[in-house]
Simulated assay, not measured.
Amino acid sequence: MRTRATVAAVSGALALSALGVPAAQADDSAASYRAGVAKVREAAQAGSGRAAGKPYNLNVSFSDVKIAKTVKVGTTGHVATTVTYTLTHGADVDITARDFLTDPVLYRGSPTAPENRLYGNKPAKCTATSATTANCKGTIDVYPGGSERELRNADAGTWRVAAEATDYNGQDPDGEIFDITKTGYKSQAGLGTTLMQRASKLTVDAAPEPVKKGKPITVTGKLSRANWDRGTYNGYVEQPVKLQFRKNGSTTYTTVKTIKTNATGNLKTTVTAAQDGYFRFTFAGTTTTPAATPAGDFVDVR
């Protein structure tokens, strides 16, 4: 059973040491938090048994995981997606301790030897619902560009959800003496899935405008998607795209025809001018790329 000493307020690192908070957890940076957990995780996955210098099997389990069906990621910036789950733990596990951590993980491939993993910048926050259960909410933080470049084009598609918990029990993974056998760890994979998708863009332009009734209208556009390998948007080739029309005064679009993007992702087709209205392209999406529909382009028919 864990025990916690009550201490008077002290400043800086001394206060954190008195509270039994590992330095890796005192540092609020994502790098420090991730590095500490990674050290324990790697030791746990290398084998089992305290005698071999492994963390002990923490008495926790995870269930009722919820995550967005799709995560759309461009080429720059930061994308965060929320993951919620139920944490069930033994009476000997103090989830309120400052050095108890739990977090969601996304992975591709094998959970122990994944092709790629994604984590959150901070541990999940949990609210107890009984003496042995809690509702937890965390995030997965994705950085597709810059020095991180966490995704490659091959990563688009299905990712699986895991959750893990680490109980340092006062041990400091960054300290000179770190007894990992006193640290508890548990990971549970295969808890759910999401689609990691390369963000898409679709444009439309209908010309000429105005146009005489009965004359041809040329509608052009381009379908492109994020290229995580290069950090750019490139044409999505040979994809079916619908041309739709909405007459002026109506709220409903109807499909005129379906065409395919060319070798550079461009679209071009012609229709006959019949009445004032809006033309647009619409792309239904694929497993690796989300749907896209731009605002309609108005054509004045005279």
Rank of each mutant, 00 (worst) to 15 (best):
T193D: 11
R160C: 14
Y143C: 10
A156R: 00
G190H: 06
Y143Q: 09
D174M: 07
E150F: 10
G145N: 11
I140V: 08
A156S: 12
R152E: 14
Y168Q: 00
G190Q: 06
A162G: 09
K186C: 01
D179G: 01
I177Y: 04
R149A: 13
G146I: 06
V142G: 12
T193S: 13
A163G: 10
D167C: 13
K182P: 05
D174S: 12
A165V: 02
K186M: 07
R152K: 15
V161Y: 07
V161F: 09
R160K: 15
D179I: 06
Q171Y: 07
K182V: 02
P144D: 06
A156T: 02
E176K: 02
T166F: 01
E176M: 08
S147G: 12
D141H: 07
T166A: 08
L191H: 08
Q188V: 13
I140E: 04
G145Y: 05
D167H: 08
R149E: 14
A189Q: 08
V142Q: 05
L191W: 11
L191S: 02
G145H: 10
Q188K: 12
I140L: 11
A162I: 01
Q188N: 10
G170E: 03
K186Q: 09
T166N: 03
Q171M: 04
D141W: 11
A189S: 13
E150W: 12
Y143I: 12
K182G: 07
A163C: 14
E148S: 14
Y185K: 10
G184V: 05
G190S: 12
Q171H: 04
I177V: 13
A156V: 04
P144T: 08
T183Q: 02
E164K: 01
T166Q: 02
D174I: 00
I177S: 04
R149D: 12
E176N: 13
R160A: 15
Y143M: 08
R149Y: 08
A154R: 06
Y168C: 00
Y168N: 00
K186Y: 09
